[in-house]
Design a protein around this nucleic acid. Structure first.
Lengths: 180, 180
DNA sequence: CTAACAATCCGAGGCAGTCCTCGGTTTCGT
DNA sequence: ACGAAACCGAGGACTGCCTCGGATTGTTAG
């Protein structure tokens, strides 16, 4: 690849991050190109469609959840691991609109993204199971609830970024059993 | 107003309800007109803009919350009143996409709508205060939390209509104090 | 009953935003 | 300096918003 092409591609991958903050994941691609200081046709030369651009942007962000998983698994207290995992997951989304919208199913899943999601999902099941086995987390909390919680909080993040922590706190209090 | 005008206006007001279910509040007005069996120009003759149509549709739905408020205020147990109010509020939204989106701030507020919202909001503050005074509801639960909860659940309603009740259950469990 | 007027209805079409492609032009690398 | 690679904006296609001028229909007075 030519040197200018590399430079432009990098600018294109960097541009969405700033724009997404304001308008969400569906900014016009023209704006992205303009922000990157690049013609619209150049954008399409690098990324045939919107999905391809997202697939170049999202995986890196999404992969950061691995760190969270790692931290949770190495936390001794199962409840603290579970609560900290959720807390971290949403805090990360609060800082990163791209990640937030990606986890809220607002991105068409490429194979790569799907793979990372799968990995994160499987890990979170383990974290949940461990907390339940320890008797700290209600046994009736299921994977669907986790998805619903993500949906719920991501919306709060979008509309009232200051309220999510309190809401999560209430949910966690409701999820905890006396035993933990 | 002429007889056919009355008939058409009624059809126009009725049409959105069915359409909103599938696509949310922002269906093309052309579709609304088609559904009503009316030309697009007729729609604009009756309602100069989308907001005017919504203002003709929303208040009726929104006013149904009054019934909920009434029920809650006449429920003796303050916690049951509070929990039942929320449960009813969301169940109502689950059945009525218009109401759901209206409460999630997706409608430009006309004076009339704003007035009804205000009334409902004031009433809900009373319900909250009563539950807190009785020592059944955490004293740190505030109006902002109520708004955040509405935002959160309305999004779950949109994307996973079967999960909201469980999620609300967890939140309520977290909100309840031992005393109640 | 009918004619005539006014109220109402209507689809075509102009405008705006976004997507994406085409053909020519510029720039990189040798 | 030459060829290939990459760049670029103009513009066609589509969708949704809204308006215009003419056609239609309800109403009422004679």
């Amino acid at each position: 690849m030519r040197a200018d092409a590399v430079r432009n591609r990098a600018k294109l991958v960097a541009a969405p991050a700033e724009l997404f903050g304001a308008r969400g994941l569906d900014v016009p691609l023209e704006h992205v190109a303009e922000r990157a200081g690049v013609g619209i046709a150049t954008l399409y030369a690098h990324f045939p469609g919107r999905a391809d651009l997202l697939n170049a942007v999202v995986p890196d962000r999404l992969a950061r959840t691995d760190h969270l998983v790692e931290r949770a698994l190495s936390t001794e207290d199962p409840w603290a691991a579970f609560a900290g995992f959720l807390e971290g997951l949403f805090a990360m989304q609060a800082d990163d609109p791209v990640l937030r919208d990606a986890l809220a199913n607002r991105v068409a899943l490429s194979d790569e993204i799907a793979e990372i999601c799968h990995r994160c999902h499987r890990a979170s099941l383990a974290i949940v199971a461990r907390a339940q086995d320890a008797g700290a987390l209600r046994p009736d909390f299921g994977p669907a609830d986790l998805a619903a919680l993500t949906t719920a909080v991501s919306q709060v993040l979008r509309e009232a970024p200051d309220s999510w922590r309190r809401l999560l706190g209430y949910v966690l209090d409701g999820l905890r059993t006396g035993d933990g």
